[in-house]
Write a protein that binds this DNA or RNA. Structure first.
Lengths: 182, 182
DNA sequence: GTTTGTTTTCAGTCTTTAGTGAAAACCCAA
DNA sequence: TTGGGTTTTCACTAAAGACTGAAAACAAAC
């Protein structure tokens, strides 16, 4: 039997997720499904992880929205079954894509907003900026550069993960883009 | 005055951090120090962010342990003052290094432990493994590969950020290591 | 349209994480 | 070694986030 190992895997996978700001239960469900060859239904997951139906439902939907798990039908049953992506490269790619979309992209917008507030509120009588404010803007700009690099890196690295053959070509492009930034 | 912009920057920087599993206040202190040209003392930070002494102290220490902020002395005062790293590339490098050390590195050890439990508990009478368990081990191994790639990527990308001149050389090595893995 | 099996929602509760503030420890100068 | 300024600790409290369970909504079969 491999129950002890599975138990341990599920627990630590959940812990790890929570240090990265991801819901613990969501990650535990993911761990369970990743190891299961078969698609599982909600009741099986509830029982295995000792969680409520609401909790299972919410986190399964969340996993589906991250494209890490998909709903599948099982002929002869009206229930939904859930099956996890098994290719770790695809897994990584999907996590990168979603975090980029949900959490990196909005940062540029926020920084831009700060920049605009600064420009509109900081102008002196003669339209010039104080040194202090110029420095502030410069630091905001530096963060924007960093954020944009992260974004472009994410988009550059994704096809690399998803399509083995495209790897080298994309890395070359990546180097070129780094060179032009420095 | 740039107070509205600073306020906004501090708030959203804190929000962003918390979606990445980083303490909100720690990140707000960091935002404040990053924008300040001068080193600030604990009381100034407490007053500016409306937080308690204990909270300020704890999070400042944490920022120092991440190498994002350093304690500095101010001649004529017995207080500690705090000054944030201003180079965003250094900042990124330090965050990557710490997260790698604290949160990626232990994953390999945990996965290894799962693997060992599996091997020791799953052997049949004849020392062979069931198909189910072999599949489990294979999936654990795939996660270990991914984790190791993340690790090696982190170590490869760090000098690249820290030393502009080493950039190309390291990327070349990176490509080589990817090639040998695929 | 009704029954039956299933999923979804959500107000209330629980758990976990973060923050407070006062007391203790620390540390230097006198 | 004593005193005053400063930092650190920690038991307690507050806030945030996650979970529950029962009721409502839904959907397929009859």
């Amino acid at each position: 039997m491999h129950d002890a190992a599975l138990e341990r895997f599920i627990l630590f996978w959940g812990e790890m997720a929570s240090t990265w700001g991801i819901n613990r239960t969501m990650s535990q469900i993911h761990a369970l499904l990743y190891i299961s060859e078969d698609a599982l239904d909600t009741d099986t997951i509830m029982e295995r992880l000792q969680i409520s139906r609401g909790n299972a439902n919410m986190n399964l939907r969340s996993l589906v929205s991250w494209s890490l798990v998909r709903k599948v039908h099982q002929p002869g049953s009206r229930k939904d079954f859930f099956y996890a992506e098994k290719d770790v490269w695809q897994m990584a790619a999907r996590i990168i894509r979603e975090r980029e979309r949900r959490e990196i992209r909005p940062v540029v917008a926020q920084l831009q907003a700060c920049r605009e507030i600064l420009l509109s509120e900081s102008k002196g009588e003669d339209g010039s900026l104080e040194e202090r404010d110029e420095q502030f803007i410069e630091r905001i700009d530096n963060l924007m550069d960093l954020t944009r690099l992260l974004e472009s890196f994410a988009t550059a690295v994704l096809p690399l993960v998803e399509d083995e053959r495209a790897k080298l070509r994309r890395v070359i492009e990546l180097i070129a883009s780094w060179k032009s930034k420095s």
